[in-house]
Design a protein around this nucleic acid. Sequence first.
DNA 1: ATGAAAGCGCTAACAT
DNA 2: ATGTTAGCGCTTTCAT
Lengths: 335, 335
Amino acid sequence: MRRVTIRDVAAEAGVSIGTASKALNGQGKLRAETRERVAEVAERLGFAPNTLAQALLAGRSFTVGLITTDSFGRFSIPVMLGVEDALGTGQVSVFMCDTRDDPERERRYVETLAARRVDGLIVSGRRIEPRPPVVAGPGIPVVYAMTQPVGEDGPAVVPDDEGGGRVAAEHLLHGGRRRIGHITGPERFLGARMRAAGFGATLAQAGLRAHGGVRFGEWSERWGREAAARLLAEEPGTDAIFCGSDQIARGVADTLRAAGRAIPGDVALVGFDNWEPMALGAQPPLTSVDMCLEEVGRVAAGLLLAAIAGEPARGTRRVPCRLVTRQSSRPGPTG
Amino acid sequence: MRRVTIRDVAAEAGVSIGTASKALNGQGKLRAETRERVAEVAERLGFAPNTLAQALLAGRSFTVGLITTDSFGRFSIPVMLGVEDALGTGQVSVFMCDTRDDPERERRYVETLAARRVDGLIVSGRRIEPRPPVVAGPGIPVVYAMTQPVGEDGPAVVPDDEGGGRVAAEHLLHGGRRRIGHITGPERFLGARMRAAGFGATLAQAGLRAHGGVRFGEWSERWGREAAARLLAEEPGTDAIFCGSDQIARGVADTLRAAGRAIPGDVALVGFDNWEPMALGAQPPLTSVDMCLEEVGRVAAGLLLAAIAGEPARGTRRVPCRLVTRQSSRPGPTG
DNA sequence: ATGAAAGCGCTAACAT
DNA sequence: ATGTTAGCGCTTTCAT
């Protein structure tokens, strides 16, 4: 029941506690034979140093808090994985805290984490909208991932939505498309606006603009179906559609199919998020822009470790998006 | 930079450390005036007791480890939320550990957590398949959620898949359907077999059996499309289909629509998982069996807290599934 | 009613 | 080369 302590090891090996500690940590001057004996005893007894005691002494806990407002949803999970990836190997453990978007819960979490003497905090959000900054108390660095603090230049890592819009446009132009529509989510989402901006800028370089205009709406399949129907009615010549999410793209695909338009033969389709269950299940499977959220998490964790080590960063870093090509945009029979 | 300690509070309040401690914890016999003064000073200085020191003394850390093999996927996330929900309010913090299904990683995590003196462990898995037990060391209770330890009677909490199959069948029978097919995932999945069993048992009570037999396959939309096409060809009279997942149901819906069968008019559809983006995006929105995974997490956390408090549980608990009714199974014009 | 002292498990500086 | 001591921040006897 009781865990074995360094006392037990020292006693069993016939040395003092201090000597045992040195032996196990490779410190000081000891006879090789002593080191070995202590190590062997520790091994045999299954000794593992109490991290709590080490932390108390070291003045730091080798833990970080991960706060998300997203109910660990589709966006923050890959970010978490990346964070954990970058920290886990470095012996830093992660406290997970889901605020459920409740400021009061968030406050309590931050307090608890501060009392646990976390070495730092990562704050992760749903999309890249700015949010009120988190104040964790003196000496506790904070890094934002997939969100940004409003009114501060706090270190943040977000996907490069604008670049994502650009690669989508370049890809479609490359495939010979010229009448390219854009159906996306609500205009109030910064991400939606940035994707549209990148997309538009690239088309402009080719002397084009969004075919039928940028159509803002919702992040749903239903909106994709509706908007595609209207676009086809108003601009029957459309030969490609860039969608602001894979869900929207699914809806668009349904409408195209119902209207007898071949994908990608008549109309090429590019989605956003590369949400595999959605993108792979579509007919045909969707080409999609991947935000590399794990990488966002890894970069954020890296910044946090640097800050903990005394090298704080400032400003917002953008992680490039990556295009994943599937059948929905392959040069088709007529394309 | 340096956090304020109880020393600072005691000095500022003009009392000894011991007195300050008692005042803050409501222990011992102190003058009310003293208590108030200490509390006031603590408040003013922003004092928060160092949890590490408390833990070292108390011999327990008020933390638990949450180990998942699922890369925090679709199934373990709701479980996590439930766990966090049940523990977070009780001042127990959660270490999150994703093994990525790598036994070596898992071993390292368990070691780290033991060294951090977690009070207990929750092991969460992808589906309910039995898995090798986790040995966390003496005195560290383990509870399994959404998975079970092979060869042990270890405390586990899983969804009641069989019950889920039953409610789906009852619902369809209630709606007047009699020729009900079943398209589901791979037979090697225990969950798939149990759902089929519950479904079959309920049909049997009505003197029926799975129309066209139980069709095991994959957990994909593509399989849903394929299997539905075959089922329609072999059993054109089918008036309902119970699907082992919402993804499969989406595929089935696509095939039905392409074949000109109205949903739910000609064929009613019930999915499984109640995965909202999938179920709501379908045409029409899917009736689906919800496994109440948050509840699974909450129950598991409750069992763990009980075990920590010295009341260990054994055996497997099954959390009932809940049917969420949407248009795909509403009594239609002809149904 | 309050203070002094011991100790949780460990490391590091200082003796020997 | 090894042992002794102090102390991380806190709680809890035990004196006073």
